Simulated scan of single mutants.
Amino acid sequence: MSNLYEVAFAGELVVGADAEQVRANLARLFQADPQRIAALFSGRRTVIKSNLDAASAEKYRLTLERAGAQVEVSPVGQAPAPAVPVAPVATAAVAPDVALPALKVAPRDEYMAAFSDVAAPDFGLAPVGADLQEQRPAPAAPALDLSQLSVAPVGSDMGQAKAAPAGPPPDTSHLQLAN
C-alpha cells in the first residue's frame, strides 16, 4: 500500500469562485505566466504535485481550494475516485431564527469517515482581502532606567580580558637528528 499522494487539477473551480480571480490567485501562488495558467485550465487532468505524504497533500488541497481551484488528492499511480457533488449551502441574508441545513460531505477515506457524523456549522467566506484578525494595540515600550549607563570614549579599552603572555618556548636542546 502506497502512502504517497498526488494533487491534480482539471480546471474545475470551487462553487461560487470567479474564474478570472482564480486564474490570478493561481498565477500569484505558482509564480507562473498566463500561458502556464491557461494550460492548467485546458480541461485535462494536470498533476500539480506528486509523491506527497498525507499531511502535505492536504495542505496543498486546502491552499488550492482557498485560491478557488477544485483539486483532487489521490494515491500515486491510482485513478482518482469520482467526485461526489456537494450542493452549496447559502449563507447570505438568512434570518437569525432560520437554521441552515448541515453540509453533508462523503468521506474520502476511513480516517475522515470518523468525522462524518460531526455536526459543524457552515461558516461563510470573507471577501478577498478582508482582515480576519482583530486589531491589537501596539505594545508599550518598557520604562527603563538608563541613568547609570555612560558611553566610553572612542578607542578606549572596554574592559576585555587581556590574553595571558605566551610562555617560554619549549627546550629542544636534547633532540637530535639521526643520519
Results as ranks from 00 to 15, higher is better:
residue 148 Q to K: 11
residue 105 V to F: 07
residue 53 D to H: 07
residue 141 A to P: 03
residue 31 Q to E: 12
residue 162 K to T: 08
residue 114 A to F: 09
residue 146 L to V: 07
residue 1 M to V: 12
residue 174 H to D: 10
residue 30 F to T: 05
residue 65 E to T: 06
residue 78 Q to Y: 08
residue 7 V to T: 10
residue 48 I to Y: 03
residue 11 G to H: 05
residue 93 A to P: 00
residue 114 A to P: 00
residue 111 Y to W: 05
residue 90 A to N: 14
residue 107 P to G: 10
residue 82 P to Q: 13
residue 103 L to S: 04
residue 93 A to F: 09
residue 164 A to G: 02
residue 58 E to H: 11
residue 172 T to R: 13
residue 70 Q to W: 06
residue 123 F to T: 09
residue 65 E to W: 05
residue 60 Y to Q: 11
residue 40 L to R: 05
residue 59 K to H: 07
residue 61 R to Q: 15
residue 148 Q to M: 08
residue 28 R to V: 04
residue 11 G to E: 04
residue 86 V to F: 02
residue 2 S to I: 08
residue 90 A to V: 15
residue 168 P to V: 03
residue 18 D to Q: 12
residue 40 L to C: 03
residue 114 A to Y: 10
residue 59 K to W: 06
residue 94 V to L: 14
residue 178 A to W: 07
residue 94 V to G: 04
residue 72 E to Q: 13
residue 116 S to R: 14
residue 176 Q to N: 08
residue 44 R to I: 03
residue 64 L to F: 14
residue 150 S to K: 06
residue 166 A to R: 10
residue 28 R to N: 10
residue 73 V to Q: 07
residue 35 Q to C: 01
residue 75 P to T: 05
residue 104 K to S: 05
residue 37 I to D: 02
residue 169 P to N: 07
residue 33 D to P: 08
residue 104 K to Y: 01
residue 152 A to N: 07
residue 94 V to F: 01
residue 57 A to I: 03
residue 57 A to G: 15
residue 94 V to Y: 03
residue 35 Q to P: 02
residue 9 F to E: 02
residue 66 R to S: 11
residue 26 L to G: 07
residue 116 S to W: 00
residue 11 G to W: 07
residue 76 V to D: 06
residue 179 N to T: 09
residue 53 D to K: 11
residue 160 Q to H: 09
residue 152 A to K: 05
residue 104 K to R: 13
residue 21 Q to L: 12
residue 144 L to E: 14
residue 94 V to C: 10
residue 34 P to L: 02
residue 85 P to V: 08
residue 178 A to F: 05
residue 7 V to R: 10
residue 167 G to R: 09
residue 172 T to D: 05
residue 155 G to L: 01
residue 104 K to P: 01
residue 63 T to A: 15
residue 106 A to Y: 02
residue 76 V to A: 03
residue 103 L to T: 06
residue 50 S to P: 04
residue 113 A to F: 01
residue 42 S to E: 06
residue 149 L to C: 09
residue 32 A to L: 13
residue 7 V to F: 11
residue 119 A to V: 15
residue 157 D to I: 00
residue 7 V to W: 06
residue 123 F to K: 07
residue 6 E to D: 08
residue 30 F to W: 13
residue 140 A to Q: 14
residue 46 T to K: 12
residue 82 P to A: 15
residue 129 G to H: 09
residue 25 N to F: 04
residue 119 A to H: 08
residue 66 R to Q: 13
residue 127 P to W: 01
residue 75 P to C: 02
residue 13 L to P: 11
residue 73 V to G: 06
residue 100 L to P: 01
residue 70 Q to R: 14
residue 116 S to P: 00
residue 128 V to E: 12
residue 98 V to F: 04
residue 21 Q to Y: 01
residue 80 P to K: 12
residue 113 A to W: 01
residue 14 V to Y: 00
residue 139 P to A: 13
residue 6 E to W: 03
residue 175 L to N: 05
residue 105 V to T: 13
residue 98 V to I: 14
residue 29 L to C: 09
